[in-house]
Amino acid sequence: MFAPPVVTRNQIKETIFDLLSAIAPEADFARLDPNADMRQALDIDSFDFLNFLIGLDEAIGVEIPEADYGKLVSLNDLLDYLFVHNPPV
């Protein structure tokens, strides 16, 4: 028997949008292209981005090393990354 995944892709997405809306309150996530450069689309600077990652770590326990920042351009990149690295509980 396998335990079902603790966190679904949609739940991760909701967490991401919650955190991002604190940083970019004016953003309309329904219109965010999931394959676009997320930081550019939402005007997120390096300070905001670091805070976003700190929030992600607190919410789902994934600490993203700096070396992986370059892999996380779009929303889909981030979702894939977090889904793979989401620690099983």
């Binding site: 390096s46 300070f47 670091l50 990652l53 700190i54 090393p65 700096e66």
Partner: peptide
């Protein structure tokens, strides 16, 4: 900086700025 930040928890990371 990358080596330094690797040693740190994410909350204590330093920005290049």
């Amino acid at each position: 900086l990358e080596a330094e930040n690797l040693k740190r928890p994410i909350k204590e990371r330093i920005l290049p700025a």
